[in-house]
Amino acid sequence: MQRVNMIMAESPGLITICLLGYLLSAECTVFLDHENANKILNRPKRYNSGKLEEFVQGNLERECMEEKCSFEEAREVFENTERTTEFWKQYVDGDQCESNPCLNGGSCKDDINSYECWCPFGFEGKNCELDVTCNIKNGRCEQFCKNSADNKVVCSCTEGYRLAENQKSCEPAVPFPCGRVSVSQTSKLTRAETVFPDVDYVNSTEAETILDNITQSTQSFNDFTRVVGGEDAKPGQFPWQVVLNGKVDAFCGGSIVNEKWIVTAAHCVETGVKITVVAGEHNIEETEHTEQKRNVIRIIPHHNYNAAINKYNHDIALLELDEPLVLNSYVTPICIADKEYTNIFLKFGSGYVSGWGRVFHKGRSALVLQYLRVPLVDRATCLRSTKFTIYNNMFCAGFHEGGRDSCQGDSGGPHVTEVEGTSFLTGIISWGEECAMKGKYGIYTKVSRYVNWIKEKTKLT
């Protein structure tokens, strides 16, 4: 034993070699072989497995989906700052455009905790909710729209109204504003409101030439003092309507412009014939205590009207009353817009006519005020429907199939267009061939041609 100890002390290297040989010859039971080890760690190889990531292109799944990435790591994937920024906006807080917040056709661009709407022409605001041009839906104005110097929408209202708090709607500024039905039992019968379409306001006024200088022999019209197929109006439903009495009662109609003036057809009036105007009328054979009678003290036909040349060209006249009318729910003026808007309103496509005229061709006159909704007829169809001249200051309205029309005794009465609950004068009943005849239409004086003249002559002093 002493000898062994001496050998170990003198030859430590020998001992180490012996131990190493023993270990190498022993069977290893701690580690699995290569094949079995792979069965336990069965993990798919990654895209760049075996390579240094710093030297390969980034992978979106590896960089940002398996674990949260930084902007720089995302930049490695896209290799483009702009594309990385677009991805980053949604990656950080989701897609803010998912709810489609942009209105009126706006395009949404996502941002971090926010979004941006790219608005089409005519709109602005956070969600493109603000109209900035009158060309689109009248700028959301209830009545009139004008573009300011910086191309912003400025709404306005006709006389007797003021802008509401929203700067879009119009509200009454006087007790009985024009064009409004205020009798409670008839307010439910107000005709369907007309909503502004998209309009090209630059070209809204037709490029028409008034044929002022045409000389033409007097034409022989049949029954051209021209509501057939209409309905009984309720008291106060058309408070701007008046009836004219002269040699015979209810020979023509008219509309209240203001307390002192009536507008009617020029062919209705004769110099030297006494005319009485009755406002607030409903049943011409009954006294309903809503009527107001006034005498006409002055007749002003349009300066281009000449019955000797043509009885229905420039067929418009103004009547001055001896005493002002007292405005109330049964006696209310009709609204008159400017030339541009009167023309736009007419193009809405349908209007209402009213009167006490004959209820059928050569038949009896109506006792109760009649009204009828009539569609506008395109000019080409209008011209083809008659052998008589249709001037540019006239328009056609009615039904091709016949059966409904204005008729004798309705002449001078109103053709009105309702705009968001307020009625505007767009025409004056003038003439036609018979009444409600198939293929024939009622012919009306186009008020847009005469609004400046009306307003100039009827100013209240």
Results as ranks from 00 to 15, higher is better:
4 V>L: 13
7 I>N: 14
8 M>H: 13
14 L>P: 09
14 L>Q: 03
16 T>Q: 09
17 I>C: 06
22 Y>A: 11
23 L>E: 02
23 L>K: 02
24 L>K: 03
28 C>Q: 04
29 T>K: 10
30 V>Y: 15
32 L>H: 15
34 H>N: 14
35 E>F: 08
37 A>L: 09
40 I>H: 14
41 L>G: 15
41 L>D: 15
41 L>K: 09
44 P>G: 12
44 P>T: 15
46 R>D: 07
46 R>H: 05
51 K>M: 07
53 E>C: 04
55 F>R: 15
56 V>D: 04
56 V>M: 08
58 G>H: 14
61 E>L: 06
62 R>V: 08
69 C>L: 04
73 E>S: 09
73 E>P: 07
75 R>E: 14
80 N>E: 06
86 E>M: 13
88 W>S: 15
89 K>R: 11
89 K>F: 05
90 Q>M: 09
92 V>L: 10
95 D>L: 06
95 D>R: 14
97 C>P: 01
98 E>P: 03
99 S>M: 10
103 L>K: 09
107 S>H: 08
108 C>P: 01
109 K>A: 08
109 K>T: 07
109 K>L: 05
110 D>E: 10
111 D>K: 03
112 I>E: 15
113 N>F: 04
114 S>F: 04
116 E>L: 03
118 W>P: 00
119 C>S: 00
119 C>K: 00
121 F>G: 04
126 K>T: 10
126 K>F: 09
127 N>G: 02
127 N>V: 05
128 C>N: 00
131 D>K: 05
133 T>E: 10
134 C>P: 03
135 N>F: 09
137 K>L: 13
140 R>L: 14
143 Q>E: 02
144 F>I: 03
145 C>F: 02
146 K>T: 13
148 S>W: 07
150 D>I: 11
158 T>I: 09
159 E>Y: 07
161 Y>I: 00
164 A>H: 11
167 Q>W: 07
169 S>T: 11
169 S>N: 13
171 E>Y: 09
172 P>R: 06
173 A>D: 11
176 F>K: 04
179 G>Y: 01
180 R>A: 05
180 R>W: 05
185 Q>E: 14
185 Q>W: 11
186 T>P: 11
189 L>Q: 07
190 T>Q: 13
193 E>C: 05
195 V>S: 15
197 P>L: 09
198 D>C: 06
200 D>C: 05
203 N>V: 06
207 A>T: 14
209 T>P: 14
213 N>P: 14
219 Q>K: 12
224 F>D: 10
226 R>I: 10
232 D>R: 15
235 P>F: 07
237 Q>T: 08
240 W>V: 01
242 V>M: 01
244 L>F: 06
246 G>A: 09
247 K>F: 08
249 D>N: 04
252 C>I: 01
252 C>N: 01
253 G>P: 08
253 G>R: 10
256 I>D: 01
259 E>T: 06
260 K>P: 00
261 W>V: 02
261 W>L: 01
264 T>L: 02
265 A>V: 03
269 V>M: 08
271 T>E: 14
276 T>S: 09
279 A>H: 00
279 A>V: 04
280 G>H: 02
282 H>N: 11
283 N>F: 10
285 E>W: 11
293 K>T: 14
298 R>L: 03
299 I>H: 06
302 H>M: 02
306 N>R: 10
308 A>Q: 14
311 K>M: 07
312 Y>F: 11
316 I>L: 07
316 I>F: 01
319 L>Q: 01
320 E>T: 01
322 D>N: 07
324 P>K: 06
325 L>E: 00
326 V>T: 09
329 S>I: 04
330 Y>I: 03
331 V>L: 02
334 I>C: 02
341 Y>G: 04
343 N>E: 15
345 F>T: 01
345 F>P: 01
347 K>A: 14
348 F>T: 15
350 S>C: 06
351 G>L: 01
352 Y>I: 14
352 Y>L: 10
356 W>I: 09
356 W>K: 09
363 G>C: 04
366 A>K: 09
367 L>V: 09
369 L>R: 14
371 Y>T: 13
371 Y>W: 14
372 L>M: 10
375 P>C: 04
378 D>G: 08
379 R>A: 07
383 L>S: 15
384 R>D: 08
385 S>R: 11
387 K>N: 15
387 K>A: 10
389 T>C: 07
389 T>R: 13
389 T>N: 15
391 Y>L: 11
394 M>E: 02
399 F>G: 09
402 G>I: 13
403 G>M: 14
411 S>M: 15
416 V>Q: 06
421 G>N: 10
424 F>W: 12
425 L>R: 00
426 T>L: 01
429 I>N: 14
429 I>R: 15
430 S>C: 05
430 S>M: 10
431 W>E: 08
434 E>P: 14
436 A>V: 05
438 K>A: 07
439 G>N: 08
447 V>M: 07
453 W>I: 00
455 K>D: 03
456 E>Q: 11
458 T>P: 01
